[in-house]
Amino acid sequence: MNIEAITESRSHSDISPEVLLSCSVIYALAVSLSDSIYALALASVIPLLLVITKKLNLSLLVKLNAFNLIMIITIALTWPDFNGGLTKGIVIALRVNMIYIFFAVMIYPLGYAKIFAAMNSLNIPEKLRVLFLLTLRGIFIMHERYSCALISLKLRAKNLHGLMKLRAFAYITCSVLLQSSERSERMLQAVQCRGGFSGFIQTGHKAMSPYDVIMCVCFAVYAIAIIILNYA
């Protein structure tokens, strides 16, 4: 975890992560509620601008749309009327792309530190924030051990099949869990020595900048316009 990133001072040109997170969720909600072509056309303006101005990971977009293609075919074949299902599938695929592009530019590059800071500002319960930090730490610890164990399994038994393979996966998962558990007990003792979880999180709340307020107002208006157009 990059602690410096949590405590770094924010420049005026930056939008705070909690505002980005809130605006993204508002946008996603407005898009999810839209069925009309006009509302979706209006909602697609920002993702299109983002695609033109920002660099996007196109391989992920291709994978997403390969999945979307399967989804469209499934919906079309299971819908009472094929054309209706095809339209519904295409509308959903459009929504998925718009929300994905928006999140890919606004939220995913934020990193853990800023997301954690956003959780702080949004008054998420302390237990949940501690759980977030410890889970992240647990993933880093366990991932290393898990990868080693899986490589070891591949080297020792290349042709494992059926129940033996499932048993190997189950035992590896449990072994890694138990090894990490011993370490976690020491982590817990260290936290208790420092005075417990109260005060475990020390990042302060930052006031909203004028840029944050402008961003919030713009997105609220944009979302309302999409919803009005949808029901008009």
């Binding site: 759980l131 410890l134 647990g138 898990y146 990490s180 558990s181």
Partner: peptide
Amino acid sequence: NKIVRTALISSAFFL
């Protein structure tokens, strides 16, 4: 006291 264990299981679920 069980929060660390909860986090570990959550990590295992993720992995």
